[in-house]
């Protein structure tokens, strides 16, 4: 609780800065005045009393600076200063400001346009996926064997994790891999993926011809993957 209060106090100390500073200066001045009075009462001349008081108090401005650090976050203070400074500079040279704003507008606008255009072209199959969002948690699923989140579940763990309901029926498992296909005397590198039987269902994609994978044949696949 005191920590929270300290936080608030600093936050509040941030805004009425000039008022707080004035108060701080007033308080320290009062302190020095008291010292001067005391020194005069002890028989010093006003001049002497004043010098002695300032010596006793120490370096006023430095103290104020240190004290200020206690109540504001310096960076926040400086950040506000930077913003004010920036705004002043923009107002002072409007030609440069307009040019800068124009450049930024064009740059950001062009970027946004190009990226949304590319997204539309490259990512159009996504619309099928969006219609029925699959839960791809299987790739990043809680591993029941070990504590914590495991990224990349081993395939033998996948059916088990589904049984324990850590992943829903729409979770899918993908492992991207590559292999070399050789047909006759030609060999070619091919990229493929090992996926769980519910892959197409989870994606909400239906083959135009034939059928997708069937869950029933899982047992045999599993042994094959394990031996790899």
């Amino acid at each position: 609780m005191p920590r929270l209060r300290a936080w608030f106090s600093r936050l509040l100390g941030l805004f009425p800065k000039s008022r707080r500073d004035a108060e701080m200066a007033e308080e320290m001045q009062a302190h020095v005045d008291l010292l001067i009075e005391r020194n005069i009462a002890a028989g010093m001349s006003p001049e002497e009393a004043r010098n002695a008081a300032l010596r006793q108090f120490g370096r006023v401005e430095q103290t104020k600076e240190i004290a200020r650090e206690q109540r504001v976050w310096r960076w926040a203070d400086e950040f506000l200063q930077d913003i004010r400074f920036g705004a002043r500079m923009l107002v002072r040279s409007p030609g440069f400001s307009i040019l800068a704003i124009l450049c930024l507008t064009l740059g950001i606008g062009t970027n946004a346009a190009v990226f949304s255009w590319i997204e539309g072209i490259l990512d159009s199959p996504v619309s099928a996926r969006r219609a029925s969002r699959p839960d791809v948690r299987a790739l990043n699923c809680h591993d029941p064997g070990r504590s914590g989140i495991s990224t990349g579940l081993s395939y033998p763990d996948f059916p088990r994790s589904r049984k324990t309901r850590l992943c829903s029926s729409r979770s899918l498992s993908i492992k991207f891999t590559g292999t070399t296909l050789s047909i006759g005397d030609r060999a070619e590198r091919a990229t493929g993926g090992i996926v769980s039987a519910n892959y197409f269902d989870a994606l909400g994609v239906r083959p135009i011809l034939g059928r997708g994978f069937r869950a029933g044949r899982r047992r045999r696949d599993e042994t094959r993957i394990r031996s790899q």
Binding site: M1, P2, R5, A6, S9, R10, G13, M24, E27, M28, H31, L35, Q56, F57, G58, R59, V60, Q62, T63, K64, I66, A67, E69, Q70, R71
Partner: peptide, 17 residues
Amino acid sequence: EQGSLYPALYRLEAQGW
């Protein structure tokens, strides 16, 4: 040292003590 008092006072005030 009287000057060093004030930083400490503001710190204590900020802590709510």
